Computed example of a mutant assay.
Amino acid sequence: MAEELYDTKQPESVAAVLKVFALLQALSENNETGISDLSVRLAMPKATVYRFLQTMMTLGYVRQEKDSERYGLTMRMFELGTKALQYPDLVELSKNHMQLMADTTGETVHLGTLIDSEIIYIHKVDSRHMLGMYSRVGRRAPLHCTAIGKVLMAWEDPERRERVLKGADFKRYREKTIVDSQAFTDELLRVKAQGYGEDREEFDDHIRCLGVPIFDRLNRPIAGLSISFPTFRYDESKEAETVAMLQGASRDISAQLGCTRFPLDN
């Protein structure tokens, strides 16, 4: 595939662009990678890999670890990515709420939005504990077994939801993963009725999540907020309190995005 993308038949300028993006994609999938690994993976000569990496370093998009001589992406790539968001202010509007919720609960807080038929984490605040949910900004996750995915689908327009779910893979990740489309539809009805979504060890073992949607000026769901708990720290007696905190954050963020009739108040 790599050879087909940038073979000698391509105009030189086009081939160069394809090589740059192939390198960026490879670094995004496996950060801190060496030249030899990139050369083998992309079927690209080491000298070419080195030359492109040095240019991208000069421009500030790639960094090199001095100790290991491996390469990775810089935060400048993340800054570019946030500019591609439909709602570029979303992360900035959510940061303080997320930090407050992380400080209050001690747990990891995520902000995610829809990309293709998955969700992508666009901001997170880590747990103060050693043990918590593994994630990173830019990581994709499935719709059918995450709290954010469920709330995005539960409040989505039925026609668009159907289109999105056609591209979803109802893969089984854990024993409790919902893999039947009818069962997932029933789950979405339950989520909307109760005003929040749950992941009950459906995506990661021993991790439970609570999530709520965020709405835009047309009162449509455009993102989700969630808090993730290791099961041994999950206190069901505090569930209502946690959900109220999430809904309060969503209400304020949604209002700042122009939402005039907060759907979770219905």
Rank of each mutant, 00 (worst) to 15 (best):
T8L: 15
E12K: 02
V14E: 12
V17H: 11
L24K: 02
L27A: 00
L27C: 02
N30L: 12
N31Y: 00
D37L: 08
L38Y: 14
T48W: 08
V49Y: 10
Y50K: 11
R51F: 14
L53F: 08
T58V: 09
G60Q: 11
Q64K: 13
S68R: 12
S68W: 02
R70A: 03
T74F: 13
M77Q: 08
K83P: 00
A84E: 10
Y87V: 06
Y87T: 09
P88S: 10
D89Q: 15
L90I: 12
V91D: 09
L93Q: 05
L93A: 09
S94M: 05
H97D: 13
M101R: 04
M101D: 06
T104E: 08
T105I: 08
G106E: 08
T108F: 05
L111M: 04
G112L: 12
T113L: 04
T113C: 13
D116G: 08
S117E: 05
E118V: 01
Y121H: 03
H123A: 08
K124C: 01
M130T: 07
L131F: 14
M133G: 09
Y134I: 10
R136I: 04
G138F: 00
R139Y: 11
A141R: 07
C145H: 01
V151N: 06
M153C: 15
P158Q: 04
E159T: 14
E159H: 10
K166A: 13
D169P: 00
I178M: 11
V179F: 08
S181I: 10
A183K: 11
T185F: 03
D186W: 04
E187Y: 02
L189K: 03
V191E: 00
K192D: 05
Q194T: 07
G195Y: 03
G197V: 01
R200E: 13
E201N: 04
F203G: 00
R208D: 06
R208E: 13
G211K: 01
R217K: 09
A223I: 04
I227Q: 00
S228T: 03
F229Y: 15
Y234T: 06
D235N: 01
S237R: 15
E239G: 11
E239D: 11
V243Y: 08
L246H: 13
L246C: 10
R251N: 03
D252S: 07
R261G: 10
L264K: 13
D265Y: 02
D265P: 03
